[in-house]
């Protein structure tokens, strides 16, 4: 796994720790991983759109 340095506000860290304390996640890493996974899933259509645009360009005009 790769370490991704990211700065979070104190409030966000506090809320994150609360989720861990309440037993939703085993630790901060697991919670952040889950959040990022959900974000990527949410952005899937946007990523797909980008990929299809590249396909159109390559298919019709690319070398």
């Amino acid at each position: 796994m790769e370490t991704v340095p990211a700065k979070l506000t104190q409030r966000l860290v506090m809320e994150l720790d609360e989720l861990v304390k309440e037993g939703w996640y085993a630790n901060r890493s697991e919670a952040v991983r889950d959040a990022v996974r959900e974000l990527v899933e949410k952005m899937r259509v946007e990523l797909l759109e980008e990929a299809i645009k590249k396909d159109i360009e390559w298919g019709l005009y690319g070398k």
Partner: peptide, 25 residues
């Protein structure tokens, strides 16, 4: 999508079914 991103990171050009169909056209 995941494989596509990995390929691009490895400097491999990646395209999908849509690209292949358009190229064939």
């Amino acid at each position: 999508l995941g494989a596509r991103l990995v390929a691009e990171r490895e400097n491999i050009e990646a395209h999908g079914s849509v690209g292949i169909l358009l190229r064939a056209f």
